[in-house]
Amino acid sequence: MSKKERKPGKRRARAQAAPTSAHMDCRELFALLSQYLDAELKPEACSEIERHLKDCAPCVAFLNTLRKTAELCRQYRPAEAPRPLRQEAREQLRAAYQAACLSRKSKVQGSKSKV
């Protein structure tokens, strides 16, 4: 949109040349659908898509099912849960945690004693 040089008087024919995508076709739209659903597209691209959707039933059906797919994935939770933590595994974690606390404490004290 923002051309740096704009020479007055010299109206370029380019202004009338077809915009890069006169009409977005199904294939182009297909590539953008997730970004469209996630509101990650610029407004111009969105209105291009919406214009296409007005009279393309297969793309509407495709968009609907893709939207539903993402929705189902968001709601999906694995049926399996982890088994309770075994005692030795918990001890292993606690040891790592306590070691981290100790080294942190000594660092804090080290920096304090310097002041």
């Binding site: 297969p58 059906a61 495709f62 609907n64 099912t65 939207r67 189902l72 994935c73 999906y76």
Partner: peptide
Amino acid sequence: PDVPDWSRLPDEELLNAEMGEQIRQAI
């Protein structure tokens, strides 16, 4: 283009355990 629109199937068909398993497998 063959695009069956199943998005409006009722929740009982889309949110049951069988579908959960389908989603798990697909992922």
